[in-house]
């Protein structure tokens, strides 16, 4: 049966890569996360519940690995994503890149979001999952999912479309990468 799971994992790889890029903001780092996710998933494939969604299970693993990684970075005082974001952001916090919707620009804007919000953007806006599915994957109440999503989406729009909103000021005041 594991062969069948492996073959479904291969089919899932493109979507998993896209989700990983949404989290890491970078294809190479995304691939590292995907690789780690697959290794972890296969080592625990006996924990996969037949009859449940393989994609949700894999996304959950990827999310947890990434959140662990981000927490470890914070403990070490490294803020790679913030540095990347600041390199692409102007003095008022708005992106100054010409091509606003290039991957770098979107990734830079997303780096300002709290990790939990970034995961939700990846699941709902980029992968197209429903709020309920995102709630199941993240283990978060659906009301919280919707509130976080609404806030994150307005923030992203404000940053990328250059609407100077209170949300921009708010997240500048708070440290990027911390939850609201």
């Amino acid at each position: 049966m594991t062969d069948e799971i492996r073959s479904r994992m291969v089919e899932l790889l493109p979507r998993l890569r896209r989700f990983a890029v949404a989290l890491t903001g970078d294809l190479d780092q995304g691939d590292d996360l995907v690789q780690e996710t697959c290794v972890r998933a296969l080592s625990r494939v006996d924990q996969y519940q037949p009859g449940t969604r393989l994609d949700s299970w894999m996304y959950r693993i990827a999310q947890n690995l990434w959140l662990d990684r981000m927490r470890a970075k914070k403990v070490r005082g490294v803020q790679v994503d913030v540095e990347a974001a600041e390199a692409l952001a102007g003095p008022n916090g708005r992106t100054v890149v010409e091509s606003r919707l290039a991957l770098d620009a979107v990734g830079a804007a997303m780096a300002f979001l709290p990790e939990e919000q970034r995961v939700l953007i990846g699941l709902v806006c980029i992968d197209g999952l429903s709020y309920k599915e995102a709630a199941d994957i993240t283990g978060t109440p659906i009301g919280t999912v919707m509130s976080r999503l609404a806030r994150a989406r307005r923030e992203l729009h404000a940053r990328l479309e250059g609407h100077p909103r209170e949300t921009v000021a708010r997240s500048q005041a708070s440290k990027p990468g911390s939850d609201a």
Partner: peptide
């Protein structure tokens, strides 16, 4: 990657 056996697809 090594894996224990046991899951079914759906």
């Amino acid at each position: 990657s090594p894996s224990p056996a046991g899951a079914r697809p759906r």
